[in-house]
Design a protein around this nucleic acid. Structure first.
Lengths: 226, 226
DNA sequence: CTTGACACCGAACATAGGTTCGCTTTATAA
DNA sequence: TTATAAAGCGAACCTATGTTCGGTGTCAAG
């Protein structure tokens, strides 16, 4: 396929159209494009749209308002994109922050939460196994105390609410004698618990089992950077 | 969900809209609907469209030509917790692995790719900003060479395809003289590029800008452990 | 320097297309 | 039957929106 050198404007137009359709379900008008891409004259937008048609990137229907369509759609529709509706989005409540110095605010079973929309983390079902959203909660990491678990500040961790763990599970534990919470791999060894950092170059710590209070099992860690 | 008894006309309108959008990429006008469904007056079409809005089957944007959008019924009722509906799941192709010793297999602009379902990573739209799935790709990390970026083996990173970066961006770069790929924060400083590990305790490396080839910008990192 | 292609501007124009309203027809209940 | 609401009609209205055109600035070729 040939290699068109699109101007910055043309690229902007293209991505704007894409986003607009995605958001509204119908294409933008010439004037809406112009405003978004900061083109003063409708004729210039028109001009560039025709360029894009020339390049085969869009199609236009003459004299039709919003008569635009992106071309690369065919293969998109060929892709099994929307079919996979089975795996839907879960809304997991972001119940608080996790910092090394404090116990995790784990929600109890008993009272009815009201979670704001803003405090919900969206997670594809298949990322967290077969658990329902009632069993799950999310925490945001503050501070860089979890570096040994290769978890950075701002990361969101998805946990399943549980108080026991199997060996090898990554869990959030409250260490009562250390007075802190960490994320570690959990191994019960006699009356001791071995807590193994995810980072293989770091050494485990050993704690008396009585001192270890499991807050939840980590199912996933999400980091976004933008 | 209750069972609206749609009139024949309303059913016809609905399926016509569906087909029309499918075929043209943009929604029909009131008059186009009227012609197709054999309604003489635009006001009647308008009337029935408002009915459909009432029933929650479509949305309309007032004073906007072709300002129509279909509502996906199933999805709306399947959601465990009701929330803004247009944050949907993106299917991002998992195009390969990233290891320190090899260049990243970045897909070109030229398509013709066929991605299997198994090779798709599902990501909530809001985790990757406003980019469409065509601009995105995913890589799975092998080996623990990315530890300095606090990225572990098995992690999946979501990238936006781009060859340039702004200072501070986390990017996947191919270092031609080192002969390896890494994830680093990118800072252009004169003719040099400073590549800063995400882990704040580690030192940056400096490379000649010519040696740096940006593969994509990292938008998100996902880790699942179960 | 002139020429012409290219990208852009602003304004005027024409019509596509949403909205409104008075009126008629059909259905449902009293 | 009559009353009332729902559904439909047609025309008028108006603005949202695509199209056209004369004109400007830039840049490279002749």
């Amino acid at each position: 396929m040939e290699d068109y050198t699109l101007s910055t404007r043309q690229k902007n137009i293209l991505t704007f159209i894409e986003n607009f359709i995605d958001e509204n379900g119908y294409p933008p008008t010439i004037r809406e494009i112009g405003e978004a891409v900061e083109i003063a004259s409708t004729s210039v937008v028109n001009y560039n749209l025709n360029k894009l048609v020339e390049y085969g990137l869009i199609e236009r229907a003459p004299e039709v308002s919003r008569g635009l369509r992106l071309i690369n759609r065919e293969e998109a529709e060929a892709l099994p994109i929307n079919i996979a509706d089975h795996t839907h989005l879960l809304q997991v409540p972001l119940v608080g922050k996790i910092a090394a110095s404090q116990p995790v605010p784990v929600p109890g079973e008993d009272f009815g939460y009201y979670y704001d929309n803003d405090d919900m983390i969206e997670v594809p079902q298949n990322m967290v196994g077969n658990f329902s959203y009632e069993e799950l909660f999310a925490l945001r990491v503050t501070g860089d105390s979890m570096i040994d678990a290769m978890v950075a500040e701002g990361d969101v961790i998805i946990l399943k609410r549980q108080n026991v763990a199997r060996n090898g599970d990554m869990v959030a534990v409250w260490l009562s004698d250390h007075g802190e919470t960490t994320l570690k791999h959990y191994f019960l060894e006699g009356s001791q618990v071995r807590l193994q950092p995810a980072n293989p170059t770091m050494d485990p710590i050993y704690v008396d089992a009585k001192q270890v209070s499991i807050q939840g099992r980590v199912l996933a860690i999400l980091r976004t950077l933008h």
